[in-house]
């Protein structure tokens, strides 16, 4: 250490400080909502994954997720090209068919925009993908039933989804109440109550075990509750 000239030491320190200052002065990386690129076909993606599509699909999911919710984008989801989002979610599901993450994003994140057309697009995606594997993907269609009924105010659509649940999700792992979602519709529960029943049922069925996913779903429920309370207060 003593062999190192002081000049080198000081300049090295100065260069390090300069690098830190230069990096700190750069604007933070920002996701550009319009820059979501198209994905190649599934076989090409499989080739790009070097024979291990599952982690590749997970990386794609995280990358897609980072295209919104970034500081500086005021209405991020609305700016996204939903046809492209749909393509991404579809491709990710094809790479990782047992993964539930893309459908969670479709139902709980991308379907929450205040744009009916985009909401319907996401619900239709959930419905279409549910049909590929109903016994595993039923929770997302159950959520779509509630969305269709309470957000879109479209009882026929909600009924169509509820009927799909009843007729296709027939495996032993699907709880009976999920197949009887039509009862919710007929009893005309409020959105919060219906979502509470759904979440309680999902948690009780053991379908969701990941603590992060549980925390996310509980947060969504709390947001719904807060929204319902404030809406009730404003009505008074």
């Amino acid at each position: 250490m003593s062999a190192v000239p002081r000049g080198v030491l000081w300049t090295l320190t100065g260069a390090l400080v300069l690098q830190i200052a230069f990096a700190a002065l750069q604007p933070p990386p920002r996701a550009d909502a319009q820059a979501l690129p198209p994905l190649p076909s599934t076989p090409v993606l499989r080739a790009a994954s070097l024979g291990d599509p599952l982690p590749f699909a997970q990386m794609l999911t995280l990358y897609l997720q980072a295209f919104d919710n970034q500081p500086g984008i005021s209405i991020p989801f609305l700016q996204l090209d939903y046809a492209r989002v749909e393509q991404w979610l579809g491709r990710i599901l094809e790479l990782d068919p047992t993964g539930q993450y893309p459908l969670l994003l479709a139902a709980q994140v991308y379907a929450q925009v205040p744009d009916e057309r985009k909401q319907r697009q996401m619900l239709e995606l959930v419905h279409a993908r549910f049909m590929d594997d109903p016994n595993r993907r039923w929770p997302w269609l159950a959520h779509a039933v509630i969305m269709a009924r309470h957000r879109l105010n479209d009882p026929p659509l909600a009924l169509r989804y509820a009927q799909a649940l009843r007729t296709h999700a027939t495996g032993p792992e699907v709880p009976g109440w999920a197949r009887q979602m039509e009862i919710f519709l007929r009893e005309d529960l409020g959105e919060y109550q219906a979502a509470k029943v759904l979440l309680g049922g999902v948690l009780a069925s053991g379908t969701v075990t990941d603590p992060h996913e549980m925390a996310f779903l509980v947060r969504r429920l709390e947001q719904l509750e807060a929204a319902e309370k404030s809406s009730a207060a404003s009505k008074k």
Binding site: M1, A3, V4, P5, V8, L9, T11, L12, A15, L16, L18, Q19, F22
Partner: peptide, 20 residues
């Protein structure tokens, strides 16, 4: 700018190690 700054940093780190 990034090349100049980081290049200088690496060169100085290299010199530091070589002297040491």
């Amino acid at each position: 700018a990034q090349t100049a700054i980081y290049g200088t940093l690496i060169v100085l780190a290299g010199l530091f190690d070589l002297y040491r």
